[in-house]
Design a protein around this nucleic acid. Structure first.
Lengths: 137, 137
DNA sequence: GCCTAAATGCAAGTTGTTTGCAATTAAAAA
DNA sequence: TTTTTAATTGCAAACAACTTGCATTTAGGC
């Protein structure tokens, strides 16, 4: 099972491999968890322009290399969308705002059809509540 | 089965019944569908201050009179949370951005527990794709 | 009718995200 | 390898949704 690298994710796609794309993808692959634009910006030591990060996130999302996992009022979260990371539910902590990935046994239903000619491209399941850390005290 | 009125929704709650609260709640009851702050603002002919609308939506949400149904990047959507309108999934059209309510036979699981001491307060199920209107052409 | 705490309107502020544009750069062509 | 050129970047300014501070108004108890 091949590991993801910035280059393997971009190859065969007519996308220029720039230094900043390698850095951004490296950071995305490095963290196993959902991330926001400003998470990336912070983890890269604020050295890369936020506009570049936003532009690349949009591009990667359009290419299906990453996917949006949660739209919080204050921020958009993404995660890597490669085959090692199939779609799954997420948990949002109402107190600390952290997002957790929830494993599930059965794959989520996708691209199904609902009554009345709705074409479903994505089924989103999320839980909201109190995470173990915040529930402790 | 009693109908909702602005007054019935607010009664017994130590909340001042102001003119603008009656108007806002009237509009919310009037439309059967999910709405955003600016939907309300528009439907009221832009006569009520947006700050007032935002403050009242927050208050109504805290009181459990309305609930958030979807956080889109650009807007928060709410719906009436009275007993005539139990929780249910929603469909978001990726093309036109419209939100549809999806009826379902079994009530959604709520306030359940997941492994590892996650306390679930809300289970959100949503579909994203192409709505009947946008699928037509 | 009077009084007070709470709600409103207005204007200014915040925050996440987007856009215009000149300078840089990857990579195709020569 | 050098040249060429179209795409990408960084910067600064713009946007849009939402929030906040504050003086004025108002609901509702007295």
């Amino acid at each position: 099972m091949d590991k993801c690298t910035p280059e393997s994710l971009l190859e065969g796609r007519n996308i220029k491999i720039t230094r900043q794309r390698q850095i951004v993808l490296g950071a995305i692959i490095g963290t196993g968890k959902p991330f926001s634009a400003s998470d990336l910006h912070d983890s890269l030591g604020s050295e890369m322009d936020l506009a570049t990060i936003y532009r690349n996130l949009e591009m990667l999302c359009g290419e299906g290399i990453i996917r949006q996992v949660m739209n919080e009022k204050e921020r958009q979260y993404y995660e890597l969308a490669c085959k090692h990371n199939p779609e799954h539910p997420h948990f949002y902590c109402n107190i600390c705002g952290k997002i957790y990935c929830m494993k599930q046994d059965k794959p989520m239903r996708l691209k199904s059809r609902l009554p009345g000619d709705f074409t479903v491209e994505q089924t989103v399941l999320q839980y909201r509540g109190i995470c173990p850390d915040c529930g402790k005290e």
